[in-house]
């Protein structure tokens, strides 16, 4: 019996790899099983960052051609390794690549997989909590058969380390195989741009902004939060910002975890676009504004005062 964690990298280990390692560590301790990690990439430079999770060993499959995700090779490596280690629980990340990786491994191993978990724990077996119905309902899932897999939603768990040392690194070579899927190109979006519909946090501005010259006020908050910038129809119609930023009935429907509406009255046409958001914050100087009927947390106040304060506070607290 052992726990294996898939350590996702993009050059360096991704934050979600540490999150998965921590969750896997907790499970391993609860189940009294050893924890192993698997790294596939160019070269594992920061094994020391894996200290504090109780990880005994990390198997590092290193090769220049392994830098980019290649489903076929990545999957067969984990498939072989899991069999070799007799892994009972495999933990991955529910990132865009991680979900595909986990699903492929689960199919090869013919085991169950619970994707996109918010929480996993051990209670006489593996338990997981995950959103279903697009987050409208939370499901508590018991995994009956092991081996089994879970993938953790990124940015949900807070990484905490204990005093355990960094894992031993066992370097392994690349298995010989020619993948059928060829990576032709990798394009990374310039840092700082977040696509509105996929953003985890959206900051939107409306008529209350007063004019296009004031966008930097909101942009500063976006930068502090790593958020995408949205706008109400009124702001778009006034020509203050391009239509691609429009949130609403005739614009985009966004589904972030956090939506901050600044100077937006919250008419139904706008609501239709922000409705799927998990938490809505409204900032408006008019206490009668409808946004306060449709938000979770409201601040009545001048956005030119509140927004900079908020950006500053977030930078302070989240630094």
């Amino acid at each position: 019996m052992s726990v294996l964690v898939l350590l996702e990298q993009r050059g360096a280990l991704k934050a979600c790899a540490h999150e998965a390692a921590m969750v896997a560590g907790t499970l391993a301790r609860a189940a009294g099983a050893p924890l192993y990690g698997v790294y596939i990439g160019k070269s594992l430079e920061e094994a020391s960052s894996l200290a504090g999770f109780g990880m005994q060993k990390v198997f590092a499959y290193e090769h220049d051609s392994l830098g980019h995700f290649c489903g076929e090779i990545y999957t067969s490596i984990v498939n072989e390794l899991a069999k070799e280690l007799g892994s009972t629980v495999i933990v991955g990340s529910a990132s865009a690549l991680g979900k595909e990786w986990c699903a492929s491994v689960a199919a090869r191993l013919d085991v169950e997989l619970v994707q996109d978990c918010l929480e996993v724990w051990w209670n006489n077996g593996l338990m997981a909590r995950k959103p279903v119905y697009a987050g409208k309902v939370l499901a508590e899932v018991r995994v009956i058969n092991t081996p089994a897999m879970v993938s953790m939603r990124p940015n949900v768990v807070k990484v905490e380390r204990d005093a355990s040392p960094a894992p031993e690194v066992e370097k392994r070579g690349m298995p010989s195989s020619t993948p059928r899927v060829v990576v032709k190109d990798v394009a990374l979006a310039p840092a700082g741009t977040v696509e509105l519909t996929e953003a985890k946090i959206v900051v939107s501005g409306g008529r209350g902004l007063g004019g296009p010259e004031h966008w930097p006020v909101l942009q500063a908050l976006c930068d502090a939060l790593g958020a995408a910038l949205g706008a109400s129809r009124a702001a778009v119609d006034a020509g203050w910002i391009h239509h691609s930023h429009q949130v609403g009935q005739t614009g985009k429907v966004v589904s972030p975890d956090l939506y901050i509406a600044c100077g937006i009255s919250g008419a139904i046409q706008h609501q239709a676009g922000m409705r799927p958001a998990k938490i809505i914050v409204g900032i408006n100087k008019d206490p009668q504004a409808n946004i306060f009927n449709v938000c979770d947390y409201g601040i009545v106040g001048d956005l030119f005062e509140i927004v900079p304060l908020l950006a500053e506070e977030i930078r302070k607290v989240c630094a």
């Binding site: 939370l138 508590e140 009927n293 601040i299 106040g301």
Partner: peptide
């Protein structure tokens, strides 16, 4: 099936509509 749903729970359904008080 090798796994089973034990429970469904609903996250908060209604918006809180909580207006924060105090100085800015």
């Amino acid at each position: 099936a090798g796994c089973t749903v034990e429970a469904f729970t609903l996250p908060r359904q209604e918006r809180l509509r909580k207006v924060l008080e105090g100085e800015s």
